[in-house]
Amino acid sequence: MKTLLFVLSLLLSHFLAAQPTVPYGNNPAAGHYQLVRGVKLYYETYGQGPPLLLIHGNGDNISAFAKNILYFAQRYRVIAVDSRAHGKSVDPGDSLSFEMMADDFASLLTSLRIDSAYVLGWSDGGINALVLALRHPEKVKRLVATGANLWPDSTALMPSLWQQQQRGYQENRNTKFTDPKRRNDWKVFCLDVFQPNIPLAALRRVRVPAFIIAGDRDVIRPEHTVAIYQNLPRAWLWIIPNSGHATLQEHADEFNQKTDAFFRTKAVPAPAR
């Protein structure tokens, strides 16, 4: 019996190893462009079912969800998007804000004839999920935000990250970037130096159920994550043990399952206290 199980295990390992790796973020079979508010947004779609919008973090792209897309595509129509000025979504403009990006996502959903979607955002994507729910509440069924912050200082961010950002800004603030890529990278970097600026009280306008997540070793202060949870009228909180900022990568299986359960449950979280 042990020999049979060992052979089956080897066969399964060989089968899994033989499966092609999906080039998330650069997949011609799933990729599309949509002109949205003056920017060609790049997005990829996977699976069928209720729409699920995935929003990555600062300086990242669709590939950030490489450990999540396959799971969710079994039950949802996954729409993974490169945010404005990120990945393949080229943005020639000089300004960038979370409000601009949230408006982009709302317009993208409208262009795809999607009235509302589940939303999962990581880091800056978590901020975007909250801003989308504030600015376009009709577009959000439920939201999951992991590693999000409401303002960019040392009361929200761990001191090491905040100090690193401040040093980077001071060292380069007078640099004239002539290369388009470096100029874009600087614009994306400055987004997190000066934004977001969301008062806690504003969260009380978010009426949709929200699942607020962070790692216990996240770059976001745990008390800040708790404050976000406490000021959302319908929220659940999950601080993941033994996790840094990359909760959905470091603990992908558990993260996927709990997020899916949150989206699918008909229960409404009790008002946060």
Rank of each mutant, 00 (worst) to 15 (best):
54 L>V: 05
177 F>I: 10
209 P>M: 11
154 S>A: 15
147 G>V: 05
124 D>S: 11
234 R>F: 06
65 F>C: 04
267 A>S: 12
86 H>Y: 09
66 A>T: 02
179 D>W: 10
218 D>H: 07
32 H>D: 06
180 P>Q: 12
36 V>P: 04
24 Y>K: 01
233 P>H: 02
231 N>S: 09
76 Y>F: 15
260 D>H: 13
126 G>K: 06
12 L>W: 03
164 Q>E: 15
81 V>N: 04
167 R>E: 14
10 L>S: 09
243 S>P: 10
2 K>G: 15
109 L>R: 00
46 Y>M: 05
64 A>R: 03
92 P>W: 06
194 F>P: 06
78 V>N: 00
67 K>D: 08
62 I>K: 06
112 L>W: 04
70 L>K: 00
171 E>V: 00
124 D>H: 10
94 D>N: 14
66 A>I: 00
88 K>D: 11
236 W>N: 14
80 A>H: 01
101 M>N: 03
95 S>G: 09
65 F>S: 04
108 L>Q: 07
271 P>H: 08
259 T>L: 09
93 G>M: 05
152 P>R: 03
195 Q>N: 14
270 A>D: 12
93 G>R: 10
182 R>C: 07
58 N>L: 14
41 L>P: 01
53 L>Y: 03
22 V>K: 03
153 D>R: 07
234 R>H: 15
224 H>M: 10
26 N>G: 01
156 A>E: 15
176 K>E: 14
161 L>M: 13
69 I>V: 05
97 S>Y: 09
201 A>V: 08
36 V>L: 09
73 A>M: 07
42 Y>A: 00
144 V>S: 04
157 L>R: 13
105 F>H: 14
253 D>L: 06
143 L>N: 04
89 S>F: 06
68 N>R: 01
109 L>C: 09
249 Q>K: 05
72 F>C: 05
45 T>Q: 12
17 A>C: 08
156 A>D: 08
226 V>N: 05
214 A>P: 09
80 A>I: 01
137 P>M: 02
22 V>W: 03
242 N>I: 02
112 L>Y: 07
264 R>G: 03
272 A>Y: 05
68 N>L: 05
270 A>E: 13
